[in-house]
Write a protein that binds this DNA or RNA. Structure first.
Lengths: 193, 193
DNA sequence: CCTAGATACTTTCGACTCGCTACTAAAATC
DNA sequence: GATTTTAGTAGCGAGTCGAAAGTATCTAGG
């Protein structure tokens, strides 16, 4: 029907841009700016090794200076709290406060998710697959880390045994044991198997 | 495989956000900010009735004051030129300069389009369809105009006759004749048939 | 005609963002 | 122990964007 956007990719890229801008304006209206929302989402899902200003900078592709200000803003608003790492006294461990977790229930992204799911499972699945591939390809192309799930990393060692008495999972890179829930978190060191 | 993002929509929404941010940073690196790129793309594809600061404000969902500054920046950079409308001396007609058209060949969106198309026609088509529906749904939900193609509008009257001698197309809303190429442009008044 | 209000756009201001450079402190390396 | 690297902060400056106020022009009602 249309002719000026030549390929499906052209059109799709345009839609991504416009959806991104629409989302950004909703995020702004919801009280935080897009980076702050992204930071909140990251902190909610990243493992303890990645939940630092540096990890956040890697994830967001921003400089440390910028991230420092984002974190300062979130702490001022009482959404995030920080504590010096005992192992490395330069390092800050960040985590959401109760208020931060509460705010995530009003994440504008949820509205988008709803709109996507309401178009049917098939459409949503197709969208997820295609976007995941695209993001992966572009991240590689731009030299950014994928920040995948711990569980799917080549350094991940699955725990052995059945539920009541099982040995824990283990990260062979950092040489630490991992709880079950940590296997589903994001990691800045993740390297797909 | 994953479990924290509960539905396909959740994951897909997250990808859209991250792709949007990635695109924005590429756009910035390419010398213009995201709004300025969007404005350029809009001006390249909108019809003469919509190619004004007001039309742009509607399209971008921004205030007129903000758009005024975007346009001023683009004029300073020599990418856009403007001329007072003779019919309404308050109104500005905007259009790309040769430099503006040239710059569009370096639109970062083209890299995205390439990445999408390189994943195969099926994936790209699916993506385009799903994103188009999503954008439409969210625009309705947010009270934004869709800015569709003139040709697909309920006010559009197709020209009659064969090529050498044909009557022109016509917009029954504005009561004006339309050239063939204008039928494929964006219009702020567009209302899908 | 002429005044009131609507409309198109600009200007100014203020809050905020983000990258940059420079800095401190702690850790790692040699 | 000296040097380099790494984690994070501070302050500056360019620039963005929205809100509100201002100017110019158009339109409608009396």
């Amino acid at each position: 029907m249309s002719d000026l956007p030549a390929s499906a990719g052209d059109e799709a890229a345009e839609y991504i841009e416009r959806l991104g801008r629409l989302l950004a304006s909703r995020e702004h209206a919801a009280g935080l700016n897009p980076s702050q929302w992204e930071a909140l989402r990251f902190l909610a899902r990243a493992n303890r090794f990645s939940r630092t200003p540096s990890g956040l900078a890697l994830y967001l592709g921003a400089t440390k200076g910028t991230v420092s200000q984002t974190v300062a803003a979130l702490r001022r608003k009482g959404l995030v709290e920080a504590e010096r790492s005992s192992a490395d006294k330069r390092s800050l461990r960040l985590r959401l406060t109760a208020a931060g977790r509460q705010l995530m229930a009003r994440d504008p992204l949820l509205g988008f998710a709803l709109a996507i799911d309401s178009q049917g499972t098939q459409s949503a699945d197709c969208l997820r697959e295609a976007l995941a591939r695209l993001l992966g390809a572009l991240q590689r192309q731009n030299g950014l880390r994928p920040f995948g799930l711990c569980r799917t990393c080549r350094h991940f060692g699955r725990g052995e045994g059945a539920e009541p008495v099982r040995r824990p999972h283990r990260c062979r890179l950092l040489e630490v044991d991992l709880a079950e829930f940590e296997a589903g978190q994001l990691c800045s060191e993740q390297d797909a198997a």
